[in-house]
C-alpha cells in the first residue's frame, strides 16, 4: 500500500468527519464527573469507617465491605441454567442474531452452542463466545416472531489477578423517551435491565443489590448473568452493587455494577 493511498483515505476520513463535533459544555462534564467521584468517595469513606471499627476490635478484615454482605439465598435473577431457551427458539432467534452479527464481522458458526440465553417476557438475550469476542444479541418477540434489537461484540480480556468481577455489557430500556440532550441515562423507570459480567475462576456465586433488593446472578463459563427488576431508576442502577462469593460462601469482594 503506497503513501498516496494512505493520504487519500486519511484526507477522506478527515473531510468526511469535519462537521462532527461534540457540543457539550465542559461545565456539564465537570459536574457529572464530580458527581461520579463523590459517589465513589462516599463508598470508600463508608468502607474506611467499617474497617476502623472492626480493626479496633482486633478482628481481621476479610473484605472491604461497606455494610454486611447480602445473605444468600436471594431471588434468582436469571433462568435456572446458563441457556434457558428451548432448541426451537434458539434456532429461530439464533439464526437472526447470526445474520446481524455477520454484518459487523463476527461469524458465529451455525452449530455453535450459545454460552448463555434467557428470556424475560418478550425479550431474550443470546450470547456466544467467538474467538476473542463475546457476541451478544438481544431480541424482542413482536407479533409472534423474534426480532433482533441489538447486537455487538465485546473484547474478552483476562481479569487482573486481584479482580473478581468486571462489567462486560449492560442493557436497559424505558417506556419513557429520553429527553434529547439530557445526558446519559433515562429519566423514567427502567425496564428489562440485563447485565453480563465477567467473573474470575474463584467466583462461585454473585449477588446483585439494587434498590435495597438482592438478586442472585447465574454464574458459569466465566460469566455472571442477571436481569434486574422493572421500574428501577437510572440512579438505582448507577448505585447497584455486585458481591462475589467463593465456593465456601465467603465474600471475595464487592463492586459497583458498572465497574
Amino acid at each position: 500500500m503506497n503513501a498516496s493511498t494512505e493520504s487519500m483515505v486519511l484526507d477522506a476520513l478527515r473531510t468526511g468527519t469535519a462537521d462532527v463535533v461534540l457540543d457539550r459544555p465542559v461545565d456539564d462534564i465537570l459536574r457529572r464527573g464530580a458527581r461520579l467521584r463523590r459517589r465513589r468517595m462516599s463508598r470508600i469513606a463508608t468502607a474506611v469507617t467499617a474497617a476502623s471499627v472492626i480493626g479496633a476490635a482486633g478482628i481481621s478484615l476479610a473484605t472491604r465491605s461497606p455494610e454486611p454482605p447480602p445473605v444468600r439465598p436471594a431471588v434468582k435473577a436469571w433462568g435456572a441454567d446458563l441457556v434457558n431457551l428451548p432448541p426451537w427458539e434458539l434456532k429461530e432467534a439464533g439464526g437472526r442474531c447470526r445474520e446481524a452479527l455477520r454484518g459487523i464481522g463476527i461469524s458465529v458458526p451455525a452449530n455453535a452452542r450459545p454460552v448463555a440465553a434467557d428470556a424475560r417476557g418478550r425479550v431474550a438475550i443470546i450470547i456466544w463466545r467467538v474467538d476473542h469476542d463475546l457476541a451478544k444479541c438481544t431480541l424482542s418477540r413482536e407479533q409472534g416472531e423474534w426480532q433482533v434489537g441489538g447486537w455487538g461484540g465485546h473484547d474478552w480480556q483476562e481479569l487482573p489477578p486481584d479482580k473478581h468481577y468486571s462489567m462486560i455489557t449492560l442493557s436497559a430500556g424505558s417506556t419513557e423517551p429520553q429527553d434529547p440532550g439530557s445526558g446519559p441515562g433515562f429519566t423514567g423507570p427502567l425496564q428489562k435491565v440485563s447485565g453480563v459480567g465477567q467473573v474470575s475462576d474463584a467466583v462461585d456465586a454473585v449477588l446483585i443489590v439494587v434498590d435495597g433488593r438482592t438478586f442472585e446472578a447465574t454464574v458459569g463459563k466465566g460469566l455472571a448473568l442477571f436481569w434486574m427488576p422493572d421500574g428501577i431508576s437510572q440512579e438505582d442502577l448507577d448505585d447497584a452493587t455486585v458481591w462475589t462469593y467463593d465456593a465456601d460462601g465467603r465474600v471475595l469482594d464487592h463492586y459497583g455494577v458498572l465497574d
Partner: peptide, 18 residues
C-alpha cells in the same frame, strides 16, 4: 459503556439498537 436504551414508540416498547 454498552448501555443501551429502549424507547417507547406508538405506546409500544420497541427495541432500539444498543
Amino acid at each position: 459503556a454498552n448501555i443501551s436504551w429502549w424507547r417507547k414508540r406508538r405506546r409500544e416498547v420497541v427495541w432500539d439498537r444498543p
